[in-house]
């Protein structure tokens, strides 16, 4: 770079023009080295290690033993694993529909530039910034039969009896959890959808209005098709987030009435860190990882489809 640098490194004199690039190569690596070290040690290595562990019988204490595909064979015939998969799928479908059913109208509500709209946006978004664990704890108290708020409120509205224990039956406990998650997440989905809505040129809606399309038709034929990419993105985030759900089931119902609320992550957690079948936990983790990567690929394909037809 400077003359002094060139002099200090005589070995590169024959081809002096290549030297700065070589030096910056080395420097560039130095800048990204801390990030790479962290990603390799705490991410890449664990992913590879998951595979290695899944081929072993791996208790917390004592020796490990290579058992080949033993864990996978066990997984294939583990009815509780299938139950966890089934429950997770059920939860994912219901909660995704519920979130979209609320977030879409919310996004349209806060899209128009009117007075106070910023305040409403912020208010709706507030639950997003607290943790899922905090939200779960808040709502488990809220829906508690003895000292909660939901029972008196719903009894006053005449919907349920004052002494209804929401956490006693699967359906009502599931309802409370969904209510909590929708309350917590709707604002996030709303903001993502809002970015999509705002990207639609207003002239398109105007043109459709002049052509005689009513509000509903404009929504179906103008807004929705143009929202495809944004919808795909928020769908990805909602689906992957729901498949990985754990906090709410652990904190609010501890697995739920008759252990019916064990999600996949919860079951892996139980197997790995309660029963200490770490090898089996790793095998199931890998299965979960494959499921999620497949879903991600499918959803990336969805996004690409959105790009082909703008």
């Amino acid at each position: 770079m400077t003359l002094a640098d060139t002099v200090s490194l005589p070995s590169s004199r024959p081809r002096p023009r290549r030297r700065p690039q070589r030096r910056s190569q080395w420097k560039g690596f130095l800048y990204i080295a801390p990030a790479m070290a962290l990603v390799i040690v705490f991410f890449i290595l664990p992913v590879l290690f998951t595979f290695w562990m899944s081929l072993h019988r791996w208790p917390l204490l004592g020796g490990t033993r290579f058992i080949g595909l033993g864990n996978y064979i066990r997984m294939a015939s583990d009815s509780r694993f299938y139950a966890a998969l089934g429950f997770t799928a059920y939860y994912t479908v219901i909660i995704t529909i519920a979130i979209f059913a609320l977030a879409f109208p919310l996004a349209m509500f806060v899209e128009r530039q009117r007075r106070m709209v910023g305040v409403y946006r912020t208010a709706i978004f507030m639950p997003v910034v607290v943790g899922l664990a905090s939200a779960s704890l808040l709502w488990v108290w809220f829906a508690n039969v003895d000292s909660g708020f939901l029972n008196p409120l719903l009894a006053w509205l005449g919907i349920v009896d004052l002494k209804t224990n929401f956490f006693a039956s699967f359906d009502s406990a599931f309802f409370v959890i969904c209510l909590m998650v929708v309350w917590k997440v709707a604002g996030f989905t709303m903001i993502i959808l809002l970015t999509g809505l705002q990207a639609i040129p207003t002239e398109l809606g105007e043109a459709a209005r002049i052509d005689g399309a009513n509000r509903w038709k404009r929504f179906i034929y103008v807004t929705l098709p143009l929202m495809r990419k944004t919808m795909a993105l928020s769908l990805i985030l909602s689906v992957t987030g729901s498949i990985l759900a754990f906090d709410q089931f652990y904190i609010m119902t501890a697995g739920g009435p008759q252990n019916k609320m064990i999600s996949v992550v919860y079951y892996i957690f139980n197997q790995s860190f309660v029963s200490f079948n770490l090898g089996y936990g790793a095998a199931m983790s890998l299965a979960l990882l494959v499921i999620l990567v497949l879903i991600s690929i499918f959803q990336l394909w969805l996004l690409r489809v959105g790009e082909d037809r703008p």
């Binding site: 991410f43 892996i268 983790s285 990882l289």
Partner: peptide, 13 residues
């Protein structure tokens, strides 16, 4: 890759 799926090896590492 969800970090939930690498918690077990992370624990060991």
């Amino acid at each position: 890759i969800p970090f939930q799926s690498i918690l077990t090896p992370l624990f060991i590492i």
